[in-house]
Amino acid sequence: MKRALITGITGQDGSYLAELLLAKGYEVHGVVRRASTFTTARINHLYEDPRESLTRLNLHYGDLTDSSRLAALLLKIVPDEVYHLAAQSHVRVSFDEPLNTGECTGLGTTRLLETIHRIGVPCRFYQASSSEMFGSTPPPQNEESPLHPRSPYAAAKTYAYWMTRNYREAYGLFAVNGILFNHESPRRGETFVTRKISRAAARIALGLQKRLYLGNLDAVRDWGYAPEYVEAMWRMLQADRPDDYVVATGTALTVREFLGHSFAHVGLDWQDHVEFDERHLRPTEVNALIGDASKAERELGWRAQVHGAELARLMVAADLAAERDDPVALPHDTAPTPRAAADVPVVRRP
């Protein structure tokens, strides 16, 4: 039985990755930050699943700013694979909190890599890199494209990317960078633009909301489906040698086009309901991110199946279903509406 450690397990990607690894027979350990409110909504359903295999999920309190705690967890768990997904991941927020973003997203990665190196855990390491690192580099972007970050978030991710490569080249760690382009799902946080759009389309159609306020509608993005992208993460750590891979669909939509597909799914014209709000603009914009994932297809056998238009409809459908059942519930595309879990630092079912 393989053992995996996931930082950021309570996020969109972490929840899908936990499901994938449990289905593959792994023992899964997740790191969560202690908070005064429950943060496990995306993974609570795993404890409600009656299958015996799902007794292999364990949660531990920890923080990327605490090297001693990271060392204690690694020595206790001794994982075969480490998936580092935790970060301050909101690009617009990173302009307001650049120091926190650098501390968590950049230096947090270095702390984890250095701890693995110093205590000698023989694990394979996945770093969640981002297409935002390419910034103003013209598309399509691949593994050889120059990096030109245009936000504190992108700069922190670029630092983490190079540190991962440095630990691979200097110390022989099996460390890889997954350069993931935008990937979404019904589990996407409500402050991210795709989920703001899908949720607003559903709520406006049901008479629960009147307007949606957005910033730049001309930004071009390569939007894929998160459950497919975590499969690519896993494949990177099963390869014979460590390397870096772009993960993308190769197709692109503007925010305006994503709006069109989303509102059309509920029979509405988005222009009747969306207004511009300059507060949502970034100080420096990234105009177009379109990935070339041919290397991942060639070497890992991975290829995206769900593209932007279908993704928009999928997300709106999930938000419609959730809003009809409970106007404040977080939609789960593969599980019932989650409930609060017991506030325990380590969860292991007997």
Rank of each mutant, 00 (worst) to 15 (best):
T254V: 02
A226G: 10
H45A: 14
L75N: 12
Q271E: 13
I116E: 02
M1Y: 06
H261K: 06
A309P: 11
Y171K: 11
E143S: 06
P331G: 03
E257I: 02
T37A: 11
H90N: 14
Q127R: 11
V266D: 11
K157C: 03
K24D: 00
F263L: 13
E184K: 02
R69L: 09
L320A: 06
E114R: 12
S129D: 08
D333L: 09
A18L: 02
R51T: 03
L217I: 10
P327E: 09
R235L: 11
F125S: 03
G25D: 05
S67N: 08
L212Q: 10
A86W: 00
E190Q: 13
D333S: 15
I6V: 12
V344S: 10
A317G: 12
G224H: 06
A296H: 04
L64W: 05
R34G: 03
L208R: 15
P152V: 04
H90G: 10
D325S: 14
I116A: 03
L214S: 08
S94G: 04
A154Y: 01
V246S: 01
T251Q: 15
P98G: 10
L314Y: 12
P227V: 02
I6P: 01
Y83D: 00
E52N: 05
D326S: 13
P146F: 08
H90S: 11
Q88E: 13
L281I: 05
A296L: 05
L330G: 04
A232R: 05
T254A: 01
W302C: 07
N287L: 12
F95Q: 07
L112P: 03
H273F: 14
E144Q: 12
S198Q: 03
E81L: 14
E27L: 01
L99V: 15
L259M: 05
S294A: 12
L253C: 10
R282E: 12
Y83W: 07
R150P: 01
S130G: 05
H90K: 12
V346A: 07
Y26R: 00
L64T: 02
T249N: 08
D218H: 12
I204T: 07
M1C: 10
P138W: 02
L113T: 08
E278M: 06
A87H: 09
I204C: 09
R303K: 15
A293S: 15
Y213G: 06
A329P: 03
L5T: 03
P345F: 11
A317N: 13
E257A: 09
T110S: 09
F125D: 02
A201R: 06
W270V: 04
T10M: 04
I43Q: 02
W234Q: 00
I197K: 04
L73A: 08
R34T: 11
D292N: 15
V286C: 11
L59C: 02
P149Y: 04
E323N: 09
L54N: 14
T65K: 14
Q238W: 05
D80M: 02
E143D: 06
E19Q: 00
R3V: 13
Y153D: 00
F134P: 02
E19A: 00
A23T: 00
W270P: 03
N100W: 09
Y159A: 07
H60L: 12
A239T: 10
R165F: 01
C123G: 01
G106Q: 06
T40A: 14
E103K: 08
I77R: 07
T39K: 15
R303Q: 11
S67Q: 13
V91T: 09
D292E: 13
A23D: 01
D269P: 09
E278W: 13
V220G: 01
